[in-house]
Amino acid sequence: MTEGRRERKKQRTRQALIEAAVELFEAKGFQDTTVAEIAEAADVSTRTFFLHFPTKEDVLLANAEWRFDLGVQAIAERKAGESVADVLRRAAQEMITDAWQTDLPDGLAALRARLIATVPALQAGLAQRLLTGQAVLIDAVHQSFSDQLPVIDAAALVGGVLGAINAAALVSLQRGDGPDDVRAAMSRALELALGTREIGTGLG
């Protein structure tokens, strides 16, 4: 099997596990669903489950690392003449689009938003991933603009953007918005954080 085929098979298995987990969490509840049941529903072994996810909480946090990698890549591809705001906007939009294409359509983001208030392990896992990803993005922005942007300023800008996007997504998901509306809420929050949109305009 070629490397490309192997990777595609791996991604199909991972997606099958995510879809099975979401369906079972919705039907039985998060606490009452076991890893063995998720694996069986995805037609794989429990061992295969653990090759993809350390715990069942990690299924709900799938794609986080990849999403931050997309942001870092976008920052690394800074074009001549781009401002810090330009680069941050492009990086954030890459991350928002990925969420819209993955977590939002399959119900993963909505389920995560509902469970975040009641599952301490999920809260801890999400916080850890956000902090790790934020640190990586801060370093990427600082390195890209090291001649003009102190690291504290980079931290404030990245923290403001991520905080705004995540807060808007959470509220939008918790009120039952669909994928397109959640994406619009995140994009609007991004522009508010960058100071390019007036507060209170276009309220949903």
Rank of each mutant, 00 (worst) to 15 (best):
A91F: 02
Q148P: 03
H142S: 12
Q143A: 15
G125F: 06
D147W: 14
D106V: 08
I152K: 01
D106Y: 07
A92V: 00
S187H: 05
T102Q: 15
M95W: 02
A164I: 02
A185D: 13
T118V: 15
L108R: 08
E94D: 10
T118H: 08
A99R: 14
L122K: 06
D153Y: 04
L115N: 01
R89H: 10
A167P: 03
G178T: 08
S172P: 12
V136T: 09
Q101A: 09
S83E: 07
D103G: 07
A184R: 10
T97F: 03
A140S: 12
A189G: 01
A121T: 15
Q174W: 09
Q93G: 00
A154K: 02
G163S: 05
A117H: 09
N166V: 00
G163Q: 01
G107F: 02
A110V: 00
R114N: 09
L170V: 00
I96N: 01
G176P: 08
A140C: 12
L157R: 02
L122N: 04
G160S: 03
L157F: 02
L104F: 14
G160D: 04
A85S: 13
R175P: 03
R89I: 11
G125S: 15
P105D: 14
D139F: 06
L115P: 01
I165P: 04
A193P: 00
L111Q: 07
T97A: 11
D106L: 10
V182D: 11
D139Y: 06
A189P: 04
S83Q: 07
